[in-house]
Design a protein around this nucleic acid. Structure first.
Lengths: 236, 236
DNA sequence: CATTATAATTATACCGGTACAATATTTCAA
DNA sequence: TTGAAATATTGTACCGGTATAATTATAATG
């Protein structure tokens, strides 16, 4: 692990362990420099990372402060890791409806930069949270990147397998969402009535090298889906 | 404007003007250094900024590439600037239902770190996009920060006024959202039927110094609200 | 005592450098 | 021609420094 990541990790841990509240001040840069015995730019990098994660905010001339959102029951929309890591507290489980190696739909091919001849793993699941239906999910994985999937992997965390098992590095993702009414199939899977509200989210996941490897379409049970996002102003 | 912002701006302009497509390669760091006559770290900073904005992605050992999402009709959820800037293409207008200096609700006070004795501007609007209802919005502004509002300001872009008129610097924001069914009042304002789906978004806007100055509750017309988010993996 | 000017604190911009890790290209052997 | 090994390319980590902008604390002033 890199120095600046390690330091960011320790600072975050320090905040958690001492349960510092929103607005509380952290030691100043110079103190942190000495404490961790690294240069200013390394500390700065650590703090930038924590700022991106929404853990702290910095004010020139003033200091470094704890940023804390945290409403209970909300989950992050931006975890580009599937869920798992977000929802450790919550108990998320999956029921696999379908797992098949097949040709992509036109839509999937477009979003994954594939032709209709290429191979994709198609995964259809229903996910549960604390016994309730959370979402209904259809995913297409580019077979030339995600070379293998099986029932066991798919019923656990696919992303964990992608990172640890396959050694792939997940980079950025493009997320598109809208609200609509449940159709019959979705309602069926979620145990709701057709016509009830849904949050529909399409995500295209990319590796750090920019290759899209997963196109997924998720329909959320509106009763279970409360999300939060932490935004930071990249002005200009 | 700072050097690295200026450079970021020019690079982005270059991409737009030459309408570079997703995956196209930009000049390498050293070329950019020479071209803009700045040090490596400044160029790096520019590119970090563009990476945050979702304009480019960088691959070590390979290069700097254009990242392009852009589906038409989707608007960014993360614009912590109200809308306006996002939706320049779209025509957004507002009808002010109510504008009043009053005491905050308990909820507003909590989210703005105020007491029930403090003053807030309360703004209630319906916003339209291309003639259709886009959303119904209730906002509370901390009077001690946003010292003045009037009908004219509120019917235009409040955030533009906050930045330009008041010289305040908008920093980060916490966003909470869920999906539900429209109640009677909301349905009325949006011209939909009660029980129809809604996207409900609460946002707490902060200045760069961390002070929350605006708590807003927005209910979107599900037919008009398609959003995108560009996420980047701050691992660890 | 309140206001203003001055100084100290603190994060950020920017420079220029070395080392290194990930990727791409070329070379060479089989 | 294929594949592996060597080399070049390219972005990132990290160092250490100076200067500056925003804020906070202190001193001076009326």
């Amino acid at each position: 692990m890199l120095k600046y990541q390690q330091i960011a990790f320790e600072i975050e841990k320090y905040i958690e362990d001492n349960s510092l509240q929103q607005g509380e001040k952290l030691p100043v840069l110079e103190t942190l420099m000495k404490q961790f015995e690294v240069s200013k730019s390394t500390i700065t990098k650590s703090l930038e990372l924590l700022e991106k994660k929404g853990v702290v905010f910095q004010v020139r001339g003033s200091g470094i402060f704890v940023r804390r959102h945290k409403r209970k029951g909300y989950m992050s929309l931006l975890s580009n890791q599937g869920f798992k890591s977000d929802l450790e507290d919550f108990h998320v489980s999956s029921k696999v409806i379908e797992l098949e190696l097949r040709k992509p739909t036109q839509e999937a091919a477009n979003n994954l930069n594939l032709t209709l001849d290429d191979d994709v793993y198609y995964v259809k699941r229903v996910r549960y949270i604390n016994g309730q239906t959370l979402c209904f999910e259809e995913s297409y994985y580019n077979k030339s990147i995600v070379t293998y999937l099986n029932e066991e992997i798919v019923s656990e965390s696919i992303f964990h397998y992608i990172r640890e098992g396959l050694g792939l590095k997940v980079g950025f993702s493009d997320i598109f969402l809208h609200v609509d009414k449940l159709n019959k199939e979705e309602a069926e899977y979620l145990g709701l009535e057709a016509g009830a509200p849904k949050l529909y989210v399409e995500t295209i996941f990319h590796l750090t090298n920019g290759s899209p490897f997963d196109f997924s379409k998720v329909t959320y049970n509106y009763q279970q889906s409360q999300f939060f996002i932490q935004a930071t102003n990249h002005l200009l």
